[in-house]
Design a protein around this nucleic acid. Structure first.
Lengths: 101, 101
DNA sequence: CATTAATTTCGCAAGAATGCGAAATAGTCA
DNA sequence: TGACTATTTCGCATTCTTGCGAAATTAATG
């Protein structure tokens, strides 16, 4: 489990991986759910998930035939929400602008 | 200025760029300050800065001979602080764990 | 135990990112 | 204007990332 700050960012630096983290923000999902949410093959999705796991962003648990993933770094969801609000148009009530000095 | 969420993460996915953002969290810096903080050549630093600018994380302003960079996405600093606290050992008083469901 | 289902690992080809030094730009100052 | 300083842009070689399909792995089930 590498854990430098930039490794966390690097792990999130791909649209599919951000998508997975967003879905996992709603709660645990099996790999099959995540595969469905994105236009990529199973092997590719699996590799993306291992990148997220390596970075300490998610954990996995096997139950029966399926593997379930869940978020292990909840502040990521908050930050993504903030970035998306920022992208839509800078809003002064977004928490992330309140510390503007 | 590309602006998808994963582009912001990708832009932060390099140790030097995280370092720059951390310094810029203290306030505006000229390129010379940033070059000093890292073991890379000027041309390389300049390219890293343009990646951050492209992603909308920093802005630059030329004054005289020097170019000054500053953070334009303040929530990044908060998030980095949270990741670093997390890395040192998970602390229940870190804001980013308070939303653990 | 053989089969099937869900997922991961492997090896490869194509494309992207990194770092460098040299050259180009742009401001300043004599 | 000519020299000088701060910074960016270019071209190149090297390394990393991505996506794929085939093969391997693991659990459940007949």
């Amino acid at each position: 489990m590498s854990n430098s700050t930039s490794d966390v960012f690097k792990a999130l630096g791909h649209p599919a991986r951000v998508q997975f983290v967003k879905l996992l923000g709603e709660g645990e999902k099996c790999v099959c759910d995540l595969v469905e949410s994105v236009d990529l093959g199973w092997s590719t999705v699996s590799r993306h998930l291992s990148v997220l796991k390596e970075a300490g962003i998610v954990t996995d648990e096997k139950r029966g035939l399926q593997v379930f993933y869940r978020l292990s770094l909840p502040c990521v969801s908050q930050f993504i929400a903030c970035l998306e609000q920022d992208a839509e148009r800078v809003q002064p009530d977004c928490a992330c602008h309140s510390m503007e000095n």
